[in-house]
Design a protein around this nucleic acid. Structure first.
Length: 289
DNA sequence: CAACCGTGGCT
DNA sequence: TAGCCAAGGTT
């Protein structure tokens, strides 16, 4: 399996995208911001928000000093706005517990709000050059195909995925760090979910899935996520109104953005419970101050 | 652990 | 067109 390292690393050097968080001057904080934004949001949509965010808050302390609502507003339409709240809380934790510096320790990273197994490993690897299995959906797919020989990885991450990724990690720290980005980039650009570009793949001659004749996916059906008419959509509508408002918003204005009163109240209550919306006196609402 | 949590582009 | 998918985390 080590046979796949060199071709993927060489492919990466020749084909990697130029991304701001990969520049030599990118700080650990910049890497961390990018990782939060990239959780379930495509690169192209992250780029503008990322640039604005770092220009405004170049250090964790800068963000920590702001009201959380400003983070939610600056999050714009990246989706899953709780990530903005968690990034803000993580910035505060970094100031309080780590002197304002993004920690380089995996366990310390994992203890931050909004940082799970993947993000902790990604920051430790990308920002600090450490050796970690950085297992995201791209890497799971690359390993599922090239090593396991199946069209798609399991629906949700498993301990087996993690073990496989650990076993595929180069021994040398610097090489492991390069492998982490490179294997992820291969999954993003070539070994894609829908229509992989196997003709352009540096390891097609060693890929277990290709060698098996590229058999189609035969696992359980993937749950298609509906969106129309869901609480999520209602929450999105409500929050969009509050994001664009510069002053507290009257309840009546929120009522106008979603017809079903029961669902609307549930969504609003949920936003308040999540800390994304702050209720004020006289039935007015705003982003948390 | 399954369900929940946004938003938009692509096929 | 309607689904599928996107650098996950939390409960």
């Amino acid at each position: 399996m080590t046979g796949i390292h060199d071709p993927v690393l060489a492919w990466y050097d020749a084909n990697k995208r130029v991304l701001p968080w990969r520049e030599a001057g990118a700080s650990p904080w910049a890497v961390m911001v990018s990782e939060f934004m990239l959780q379930q949001t495509p690169v192209n949509r992250v780029l503008p928000a990322y640039e604005r965010w770092l220009a405004r808050w170049p250090t964790p302390a800068d963000l920590a000093a702001e009201a959380p609502g400003e983070a939610v507003r600056a999050w714009d339409r990246l989706g899953y706005p709780r990530r903005a709240l968690r990034l803000h809380a993580a910035a505060q934790a970094i100031v309080e517990r780590h002197g304002g510096e993004v920690p380089d320790d995996h366990a310390a990273l994992l203890a931050l709000p909004g940082v799970g197994t993947y993000t902790a490993a990604a920051i430790a690897s990308f920002a600090f050059g450490q050796r970690h299995a950085v297992v995201d959906t791209n890497v799971r797919r690359v390993l599922a195909r090239s090593l396991t020989g199946v069209a798609q990885p399991s629906i949700s991450p498993t301990a087996a995925d993690q073990r496989l990724a650990v076993s595929a990690l180069p021994d040398d720290e610097a090489t492991a760090a390069r492998w982490a980005v490179a294997s992820m980039e291969l999954g993003a650009l070539v070994c894609t979910a829908r229509t992989p570009n196997c003709a352009g793949c540096p390891i097609r001659s060693r890929c277990a899935w290709v060698l098996a004749g590229s058999p189609p996916y035969d696992g359980p059906p993937r749950k298609g996520q509906t969106y129309e008419g869901t609480d999520r959509q209602a929450r999105g509508r409500l929050l969009a109104v509050l994001r664009s408002a510069s002053a507290p918003v009257a309840k009546a204005e929120l009522d106008a953005c979603w017809p079903d009163a029961v669902q609307r109240e549930r969504a609003l209550d949920g936003l308040v419970a999540d800390g994304l919306v702050e209720p004020l006196a006289r039935s007015r609402y705003r982003l948390p101050g």
